[in-house]
Simulated scan of single mutants.
Amino acid sequence: MIRIQQQRGRSAGPLHAAWAWALRVAPVLFMALLVALGAGTAYAQPVSPAEVLLFETNHLARTRAPSALFYDFRKVSNVEAGFTDTVELDLTKEDGHMHARLRFLSGERKRELPDIDDAHGNPVLLGFLEHDIAEMKRLTGGSTTYFRKRIRMALANTAQVSKQTISFQGKSYDGQAVRIQPYLDDPLHARFEAYVHKTYTFILSDAVPGGVYQIATTLGTSGPGRTINATADAAKGVQAGVQPGALADGRVAKRPEKASDPPSIEETLTLVRVTDQKR
């Protein structure tokens, strides 16, 4: 059985280094993922529809610059305290090239990520995956290489792509959802059995700035692929006096009713607003 450890540790070094190097060298985010998730320089398999949607699509093609995209990030857990925080993507353009600066979370949770001088894909995808893998390593002591490999294989071989309707700023738009369960058929599931049903959901739409509307992971019994209306939740939080980056109250930090309750962790990143930075 997996042992969820309570201590916090710094464990993102190798992944961070690979991710930073890849983003500086590769002009397309898909190539960055291959390096960051351990695919090496050769990749003989045909590219799957899920990989095309996530990492071979220019998500920023229709996004005006300069502008700032703001995402709501929230964690709900019965393992440790949950929280709400923000992710900000600042975009500027010079000589036809899109420059991207990602500010992923804040305070002690902040992740230092490299700027991208010629961005095509949305950096929040790799930012979220880096955070996710680092958290799994922290909680389990597992190998980052193992987690990278399982995510990469799931995107290439077993990802499900479906139509998805999203709601952004009071309007409905067509989108697509990519769902994977990287550990479902894992031969090593006995070592990480709490992750067997972990589900990743990526929701994309050409109609929203940045192309990426929501990224979510679910570990527990809340049901795979459940999405959270973070726009509405964030508004309620502001009305209740909960500020971004503050430790959340019982709405997002629930404790197990019984010691025997299985671990439950949900993390969700959702686009909530866009600000035009032109003066």
Score class of each variant (00 low, 15 high):
M1Y: 13
Q6A: 06
Q7H: 09
R10P: 01
S11V: 15
S11Q: 10
G13K: 15
G13T: 10
A17G: 05
A18G: 08
W19R: 11
A20V: 05
R24M: 08
A26M: 13
M31P: 00
A36I: 00
G38T: 09
T41V: 11
Q45C: 05
P46F: 03
P49Y: 02
P49H: 09
T57L: 03
H59N: 06
A61N: 04
A61E: 15
A61T: 08
T63Y: 13
R64W: 05
P66C: 12
P66A: 13
S67Y: 04
L69R: 00
F70T: 15
Y71P: 00
Y71A: 03
V76P: 01
V79I: 10
V79T: 12
T86N: 06
V87S: 07
V87K: 11
T92P: 04
T92E: 15
E94A: 12
D95Q: 14
D95S: 02
M98P: 00
R101V: 15
F104C: 01
K110E: 15
R111D: 08
L113T: 02
P114Y: 01
P114W: 04
I116D: 06
D117M: 09
D118P: 01
H120A: 14
H120L: 13
V124A: 03
L125M: 06
L125R: 09
F128D: 06
F128R: 09
L129D: 05
L129N: 08
L129E: 07
L129K: 07
E130M: 10
T140D: 05
T145V: 13
F147D: 00
K149M: 07
K149C: 03
I151E: 03
L155G: 01
L155T: 02
L155W: 00
T158E: 02
T165A: 14
F168L: 08
Q169M: 12
Q169E: 15
Q169W: 02
K171W: 05
A177C: 03
V178K: 04
R179V: 01
R179W: 01
I180V: 03
Q181N: 11
D185S: 11
L188C: 05
H189T: 03
H189N: 05
R191L: 14
T199Q: 14
T199F: 03
Y200S: 00
I203D: 07
I203W: 06
L204P: 06
L204Q: 10
G211I: 02
G211T: 07
Y213A: 10
A216L: 00
S222T: 12
S222L: 14
G225I: 00
A230N: 05
K236C: 05
V238F: 15
Q239N: 04
G241K: 00
V242T: 07
P244N: 06
G245D: 01
A248C: 12
D249I: 04
D249G: 15
G250R: 04
A253C: 08
K258T: 10
K258F: 13
K258C: 03
A259T: 07
D261H: 00
D261G: 02
P263T: 01
E266Y: 14
E266C: 03
L269C: 04
V272E: 02
R273V: 09
T275C: 07
D276L: 09
K278E: 06
R279G: 10
